[in-house]
């Protein structure tokens, strides 16, 4: 029995059409690449797939078996046949969207996405604790923080209905460098980053970081703490990093 390796060339079918890909590629990415529309909240190509929002459902036929699965964490394999719009996929996705609507009733992103798929309301009760919470628990913020920023400042805590994305003990996230990558990837814009009076304030992680003033133009740009971390990692002196990207570019 031969074992395929990541990156091996494979051929597979989507809706009857044949495509080439690499063993282990995310099926969701392949679908989007070839123009098939599949919704998702918890997927971002920069980080590993997680499979929590259950929106990117498709049906995959492998050998004799055909089943519904999420496509983000499904590795493309030789000979699979993918169906993106079956009756089951539509039916389950509708219920999943209804669950999202009851979990994050106020999120514009969730409501817009649901509306795109014709789901305007939910038959499910909104739990008291979810009324004003827009977090869909997709975990993108912590995956970016772990896998890209490498500071792991935040994490999931609790389980089941008590699962939350939090800073340690829900106190100041001391490891957070204030880069804002989490804010950038959040699909529902629920982390909250503000800057005022020379401070970058990230509400959800209880983090306040003073901003560096550019030595050339005098504008405040990045948190000083973040620049110190960059200096440590890259070996570039802190003095060089005290100039804002715009001024640095104009110098070059």
């Amino acid at each position: 029995m031969s074992h395929p390796k990541k990156g091996d060339k494979v051929t597979f079918k989507i809706e009857g059409r044949t495509y080439d890909g690499r063993y282990g590629d995310s099926l969701l990415e392949q679908l989007r690449k070839h123009g098939y529309e599949v919704p998702s909240l918890c997927y971002h190509e920069a980080v590993s797939p997680y499979g929590s929002c259950r929106l990117c459902l498709v049906e995959v036929k492998k050998g004799k078996k055909q089943k519904v699965t999420t496509s983000c964490n499904y590795p493309v394999q030789e000979g699979i046949e993918v169906f993106v719009n079956t009756e089951k996929v539509r039916r389950y996705r509708k219920v999943v969207l209804q669950l999202h609507l009851s979990k994050t009733p106020k999120s514009k992103a969730v409501r817009d996405l649901a509306a795109e798929y014709g789901v305007m309301e939910t038959p499910y009760e909104v739990q008291e604790q979810d009324k004003d919470n827009d977090c869909v628990l997709c975990g993108l913020c912590s995956r970016v923080c772990d896998e890209i920023v490498h500071v792991s400042a935040i994490s999931f805590t609790g389980r089941g209905q008590n699962k939350r994305m939090q800073s340690p003990y829900d106190e100041t996230a001391e490891a957070c460098i204030g880069c804002g990558a989490c804010v950038y990837v959040c699909p529902t814009d629920c982390i909250g980053l503000q800057e005022s009076d020379g401070i970058r304030h990230i509400e959800k992680w209880h983090r306040d970081l003073p901003l560096q003033t550019c030595e050339k133009c005098g504008k405040q740009f990045f948190p000083t703490f973040m620049l110190m971390e960059f200096s440590k990692r890259t070996g570039i002196s802190k003095d060089q990093l005290n100039i804002c990207p715009a001024c640095r570019n104009s110098v070059v």
């Binding site: 219920v95 389980r159 209905q161």
Partner: peptide, 21 residues
């Protein structure tokens, strides 16, 4: 089972809570 759900995926986490309700 709703109490023991890890809460990772929405169908188990919210689905079970709604079934309970």
């Amino acid at each position: 089972l709703a109490d023991e759900s890890c809460g990772k995926c929405i169908t188990c986490r919210e689905g079970l809570v709604q079934l309970c309700s």
